[in-house]
Design a protein around this nucleic acid. Structure first.
Lengths: 167, 167
DNA sequence: GGCCAATTGACTTTCTTTGACCAACTGGAT
DNA sequence: ATCCAGTTGGTCAAAGAAAGTCAATTGGCC
């Protein structure tokens, strides 16, 4: 059994059904497995990605930690399907706009959320100097991250509060 | 738990809903936590910034004090300020997260919208290969575009529709 | 042998804590 | 009114404590 596999399953046994979240010290874990600390990063990068259904948070410095959260999808499978199939590794603004329109129509996101999504993937927002291909990749990543956030939400709690006065 | 965290929560428990303002003695607090007085300044500088929604006033000399005031902004002016002044040409993820937290607290965006905003400006979403400086510029552009979209919305229409089925 | 995944370690970045030194008030003595 | 001693708080740089990055090597598997 490879070291990476051991570390992976070690972490996964900590993440039981009742415990969707685990916090660990990188150096301690590395010490436990007698390996380089960066090995932990490797395992996280290859086996606990967002696509695998995990979110990693961490802090450096004194009292630092690494937190691994198993994402609980509360959204529809339809949205997850769209994320995987329609977006992929690259997407144009036109395709993204069309997709967002469908999400609104199907009431998977609100109109307000839709306009936020459109703003984030607009060509003007992504207009830092970079080749077109990279821009499409960047757009895909952002859109996927945002929609993944949506799937994690309890959508029934997404009602807006009172509107602020537009003074 | 970090010392800074303890001091932070200590101060925050003093700042209740009815009490938007607290006055303290730096040396007393430092003595209470058995730390260097400048540690208090560190906590204030990192956890009670204007971005976090606090204003600090103080006086030196006999009868000196530090006063921490939680500020409340007026609706859309806050958004205008953020877009025009605060975000600027570049912003870090940490800064962006603070601002978004404030927007949620002021009810300028819903919690769901907040998590979409955070996802869009996250380091992982922007992790196409590019230098850090460009990433911060990219993040600023995206955040500004999204918040501009929010200002254009009639926020009273932002209520979420029925929650999608959990299939 | 070539390719890809895994491993390592040197170097970097971020966050925290401390301490030495500085700046601003207050109040009393002159 | 001035000056001085004492009392606070402020700043900044250095040290310490994690975690992150990246490129070079290693090790299996076709």
């Amino acid at each position: 059994m490879r070291l990476s596999d051991s570390i992976e399953s070690f972490i996964k046994t900590m993440l039981t059904q009742e415990e969707p979240e685990v916090e660990l010290k990188r150096n301690e874990l590395a010490e436990y497995f007698k390996c380089a600390p960066s090995q932990i990063n490797y395992v996280l990068a290859t086996r606990f990605t967002l696509d695998d259904g995990y979110v990693i948070e961490s802090r450096r410095g004194g009292g630092g930690y690494i937190r691994i959260v198993r994402v609980v999808y509360s959204g529809s499978q339809r949205l997850q399907y769209l994320i995987r199939e329609r977006i992929g590794d690259a997407i144009t603004e036109a395709e993204a706009v069309r997709l967002i329109g469908q999400l609104e129509e199907q009431k998977l996101v609100t109109a307000c959320e839709g306009s936020i999504l459109r703003a984030a993937v607009s060509d003007t927002a992504l207009s830092v100097p970079m080749p077109e291909a990279m821009k499409r990749a960047q757009r895909a990543k952002i859109l996927r991250a945002m929609l993944t956030a949506v799937t994690r939400q309890n959508r029934s709690e997404c009602q807006g509060e009172a509107a602020p006065s537009m003074t």
